[in-house]
């Protein structure tokens, strides 16, 4: 059973505060909730929290035979599932819900289609052996903007992960366990970050979509904001100012200028996120180093 949609007073209160550029949790309009990354004991195990939204990502690698049509490339598969654990909103029925489809497609686009991981570097022996990376995303709690949190968790898990070093002599493949040789990080082309904006039609006319005033744009919507928003704009981009995914379907129509200003905000945020993620991954790796004498 889905919980009832936000009540009318709740809705009106949110709209009236947005008029004054205030958000219910005290953030600025383009301010994200604090992002926290907790790394597990194992490599490639990341717990990512964005406010109260929490996603766990885990990477593991195994050796497989490559696909016959791509003998020089490793395989990456992303598994994600939204269980009723994340929020009572989600039911565990057979058919994937719209949110689930959107999440798995976004992860696919951000992680696989944008070529974040160098797949050819995952090849061990052409046509014989390649690495198969399996990224599993567990959505633990949804307090809004699950999409960005999941993409962040997935990308950071890939940055954090290190595969065992392998040595190839002729046709002989030797895998060195982490105890004898330091595991090697994956070769990543870039790190895309997903950023979602919630759009609110300007007051007076929540229904009239052809009004001339600019809509209100919020970065990183909370659950209530997300549910009341009249449309979202999801962008995925890296710190090198390259957009990887733009997805805006329906909702409030925007002028090209409004789209571009959202893109510019996202560019700034992506740079900040990149810096922070980089620092956190380095810090964790430094802690994991064991000096061998």
């Amino acid at each position: 059973m889905r919980p009832p949609s936000p009540s009318i007073p709740e809705k009106e209160f949110l709209f009236s505060t947005l008029e004054k550029s205030l958000r219910l949790d005290g953030r600025g309009l383009i301010e994200m909730r604090p992002l926290e990354l907790t790394f597990g004991e194992e490599l490639g195990h990341v717990d990512c929290t964005l406010g109260k939204t929490r996603v766990l990502a885990q990477v593991d690698a195994k050796m497989v035979r490559p696909l016959p049509e791509r003998p020089f490339e490793g395989i990456i598969s992303v598994h994600s599932e939204i269980s009723p654990m994340a929020s009572p909103e989600y039911e565990s029925t057979g058919r994937p819900s719209d949110e689930e489809v959107a999440l798995s497609r976004m992860l696919d686009k951000v992680i696989r289609r944008s070529d974040a991981v160098d797949r050819e570097a995952l090849c061990i022996l052409a046509g014989q052996r390649v690495w198969h990376l399996r990224l599993t995303i567990h959505c633990l709690s949804d307090a809004g903007n699950l999409l960005d949190c999941a993409c962040m968790a997935g990308m950071v898990a890939l940055r954090h992960f290190r595969r065992p070093d392998v040595e190839v002599i002729g046709d002989e493949v030797t895998v060195h366990p982490p105890s004898s040789r330091a595991p090697v990080p994956l070769s990543l082309h870039h790190t895309p970050f997903s950023l979602t904006f919630a759009l609110f039609a300007p007051s007076s006319s929540h229904t009239n979509i052809s009004s001339q005033t600019a809509p209100i744009t919020l970065l990183d919507p909370s659950l209530l904001e997300q549910r009341l928003a009249s449309g979202t704009l999801s962008l995925a981009l890296n710190a090198q100012r390259e957009l990887c995914v733009v997805h805006k379907a329906g909702g409030v129509p925007l002028t090209p200028e409004e789209v571009l200003s959202a893109v510019n905000i996202a560019v700034q945020k992506a740079k900040e996120l990149e810096k922070m993620v980089d620092a956190r991954v380095r810090e964790d790796w430094a802690m994991k180093k064991i000096e061998v004498r």
Partner: peptide, 16 residues
């Protein structure tokens, strides 16, 4: 009528 965009969809890498 308004010249506004209602859908933008991109899946490939492109500079801003």
């Amino acid at each position: 009528r308004t010249g506004r965009v209602t859908l933008v969809s991109m899946e490939t890498r492109l500079h801003v």
